[in-house]
Amino acid sequence: MEFDRAGVRALMEITQRPELVFVRGQGSWLEDHSGKRYLDMIQGWAVNSLGHSPLSVVKAMAEQSATLMNPSPAFYNQPSIELAKRIVQNSCFDRVFFANSGAEANEGAIKLARKWGQIHKEGAYKIITFNHSFHGRTLATMSASGKPGWDRLFAPQVEGFPKAELNDLDSVAALIDNSTVAIMLEPVQGEAGVIPATDEFMQGLRELADQHKLLLIVDEVQTGMGRTGTLFAYEHSGIRPDIMTLGKGIGAGVPLAALCAREEVSCFQHGDQGGTYNGNPVMAAAGVAVFDELTSPGFLTAVNARAQQLSEGLEAISAKWGMHGERGTGLLRALMLDQDDGPALVNAARERSPEGLLLNAPRPNLLRFMPALNVTAEEVDLLLAWLDELLTQVRG
């Protein structure tokens, strides 16, 4: 198959893409239009929790689409009920609203927190977020994000998101005033370079929120659904958040996200929240298949085994090459380079022959790894061997 340059020009230009078109994928492997295979350690930015085209999800979607695709969100459908039940039964939350993307779920969390502030805190609306955080690409979620430079894009930004420093409780406390309604954070800052919030910090935020009658919101769009070795990342610190958002891995590759809240926080009135595709039965059926696989006996045990293997392997590479170590939680990890050759390594990995490797460098001095949660031990070994080979190639 030839690369269709004329066809590509019909797509809106939003990012620089290499001249290849992926045509099929299975598990941890992708194949492009020329037949070249790639070991995928990005997986749609932690989206494909079960790898490419997992059979359980394909089967669930095929069966559901042949039965009922969209009855309208004005009516109940069984797959959305089944998925909501599973989330509630396996978390500290009581209510779930389904959306199409993590940004949309986060937008819903912001709305819910501000609604709660109108009812319970005399109109308090400010939500403390964190420098270098990433919550999405809508105007409100961009404003909530602490990504450098985003305060100058699409101005004016949405007001009401003062920024604290991750793992610095005093910086959070200093921002609290009578207009503050919530604290919102990623348990692991992914786009910032895989920086985990410490358990002590998470516990301190819960205490601070309780002390000032604030809501604690965890954005688990990237960390939720088994990514960190527990079903939800907040479980590591033993806290009980008030609101949680899910996305990416919950659908294992299809557009699905969730806004989850405790009963006492679920204060939307009819008409406050909605969406044409919320709780779509085909997407929800996919979510049920994903959830059942992630919670099957031994699945998360295997995730933690692969996480330890990857962590130890990256640490060994770091020691060999005089780098700055590795960090992360579960199968969301980063190798901290000692120079800014992350982009060069990404390019060399993709162009590797006869088989390529897909890597991600959210910072020039860092590589991020987000493999499928069911990646095999052999595939992790292959990644580590190829990475060492690529470092020799790029660094001479």
Score class of each variant (00 low, 15 high):
A286N: 04
R368Y: 00
C260P: 10
V303Q: 05
G253D: 07
F268E: 08
V303I: 10
Y234V: 12
M244A: 15
L294H: 02
R368W: 00
L256R: 06
E315I: 05
I250W: 04
S296C: 12
A284C: 09
A361C: 03
V265H: 06
L335T: 02
P255W: 06
D340I: 03
D338H: 11
V346I: 08
G330Y: 04
S353N: 09
S237I: 14
V288D: 06
D242C: 14
L358T: 06
D341P: 00
V265Q: 11
G251W: 08
F291P: 02
A286T: 05
G298H: 06
A348N: 05
I243C: 10
H324M: 10
G322I: 06
G274P: 06
G238R: 13
L331P: 03
A305S: 01
P297I: 03
G298R: 01
V282G: 01
E315G: 12
Q309S: 09
G253L: 07
E315V: 08
H324P: 02
I250Q: 07
G275Y: 05
H270F: 13
L294M: 01
L367S: 02
T245E: 10
S296V: 08
M283H: 13
L357M: 08
G287Q: 00
R306K: 10
G249S: 15
K320G: 06
A284Q: 01
K248C: 12
S296M: 09
G325E: 11
A307M: 05
N278M: 13
T295Y: 05
R262Y: 13
A316V: 06
H324K: 15
G271E: 06
A319E: 14
R352G: 02
P354H: 09
A307S: 07
I317Q: 00
P281W: 02
E355N: 14
R306C: 08
G328R: 01
L358P: 02
T329R: 11
D292H: 03
Q309M: 11
M336Y: 08
A361T: 02
Q308S: 13
Y277V: 09
Y234H: 15
S318K: 00
Q269A: 15
C260Y: 10
A319R: 13
G356W: 04
